[in-house]
C-alpha cells in the first residue's frame, strides 16, 4: 500500500523537476521537433542493395531507436536522413521546410577539431550563425548543458573519451536542432560512462524536445531510452516495437527486460534464418 502510493509520487516529483525547465525552453523556441516521413526509400552501393523500401513515419519529438545486425544498413539510413548521401529512390520529408541547422548528426567518433579549443569546437555547430554576436554565449550554454563549462579553454586532446563525446553532443545541440540523429554515439565508451551518457541524452532530449533517432548495437540501451524500437532486416523495417514504460525508467526492470528479450529473439531468429 505504502509503496504503491510512493511510486507515482516520486514520479510526479521527477516530472515537476523537469517540466519548468522544459517549459522555459519551449518559450524561447516555439518550434520543436520535426516529424519525419520516409516513403519507399531505396539505396544501393553497386550491386549491393542495402535499403529495399523503407516506409516510416516518426511523429515530432519522438525518440526512436534503430537496431539490426551489423551491415544491415543502419548507418546508411541515418546518412540519408541527414542528407549526407544521395537517395536512389523514394523520399524523405520533414513536416515543414527544414534549415540545415535543424538536422544534426552525432557519430561514434567525436570528430572534434584537435587544433580548436573546446569552446570553438562547439561554436562550429552553429553553422551559418558562427560569426554572429551571440556565438560565444550560445556555445557556453551548450557546454554547460553537457556539464563541461569548466573545460571551455582546453584542447580536445586532454579530454577523456566520454568528455570528447559530450563536447560533440554540445556541438550538435548548440544550433538547437529539431532532428538529432545518433550513429552509435556511445559505442566506444566504457559501461559506466555509457550509462551516464545515456542519462544525459535522455535529459537533453526531454529538455529540448527534438526528434531523436538513435542507431545502436545495444538493445538494452534502445529499450531504456526510446519510445519506439525499429528492427531493420534485409533492407526493410522488420519489427516496430513501442516502449510504453514511463520515464524516468528503471534500468533492468522486468518490463524493459521482457521487451529487450523479445527484440533480441527477433534479431537472433533472423540471424538463424540466414
Amino acid at each position: 500500500m505504502q509503496t504503491a502510493l510512493l511510486l507515482p509520487e516520486t514520479e510526479r516529483n521527477e516530472r515537476a523537476r523537469i517540466t519548468p525547465q522544459a517549459r522555459r525552453r519551449r518559450e524561447d523556441r516555439p518550434a520543436l521537433g520535426l516529424p519525419l516521413t520516409i516513403r519507399n526509400l531505396r539505396k544501393s552501393f553497386g550491386d549491393n542493395e542495402v535499403l529495399r523500401g523503407i516506409d516510416l513515419h516518426i511523429p515530432a519529438g519522438q525518440f526512436v531507436a534503430i537496431v539490426g545486425k551489423s551491415g544491415c544498413g543502419k548507418s546508411t539510413l541515418l546518412r540519408l536522413i541527414a542528407g549526407l548521401d544521395k537517395i536512389d529512390a523514394g523520399a524523405i520529408s520533414f513536416g515543414e521546410a527544414a534549415r540545415p541547422e535543424d538536422i544534426r548528426v552525432m557519430f561514434q567518433e567525436p570528430r572534434l577539431l584537435p587544433w580548436a579549443r573546446v569552446l570553438s569546437n562547439v561554436e562550429v555547430g552553429l553553422g551559418r550563425d558562427r560569426a554572429s554576436q551571440d556565438a560565444h554565449p550560445r556555445a557556453e550554454h551548450a557546454l554547460t548543458e553537457v556539464g563541461l563549462a569548466d573545460k571551455r579553454d582546453q584542447w580536445p586532446s586532454v579530454l577523456s573519451g566520454g568528455q570528447k563525446q559530450r563536447v560533440a553532443l554540445a556541438r550538435a545541440l548548440v544550433s538547437q536542432p529539431r532532428v538529432l540523429a545518433f550513429d552509435e554515439p556511445l559505442g566506444a565508451l566504457d559501461a559506466l560512462t555509457r550509462i551516464s551518457m545515456q542519462r544525459l541524452l535522455e535529459r537533453v532530449w526531454r529538455d529540448q524536445g527534438f526528434t531523436a533517432i538513435l542507431v545502436t548495437h545495444d538493445v538494452a540501451e534502445a529499450v531504456a531510452l526510446a519510445d519506439r524500437v525499429l528492427v531493420i532486416e534485409e533492407g526493410r523495417i522488420a519489427h516496430d516495437a513501442t516502449v510504453n514504460a514511463p520515464r524516468p525508467r528503471e534500468r533492468g526492470s522486468v518490463e524493459l527486460a521482457g521487451l529487450e528479450g523479445s527484440i533480441l529473439r527477433h534479431l537472433l531468429s533472423a540471424d538463424d534464418r540466414t
Binding site: 540545415p100 544534426r104 557519430f107 570528430r111 577539431l113 587544433w115 562550429v124
Partner: peptide, 24 residues
C-alpha cells in the same frame, strides 16, 4: 571524417580550408 564534419556543419570551401584543411 573531419572534412565531412565541416561540410555537415555548413562550412563554405574557404572556411573548410581555414578551419580544417590548413591546420590539419
Amino acid at each position: 571524417q573531419l572534412i565531412e564534419m565541416g561540410r555537415i556543419y555548413g562550412m563554405s570551401d574557404g572556411e573548410l580550408f581555414r578551419r580544417v584543411i590548413f591546420p590539419g
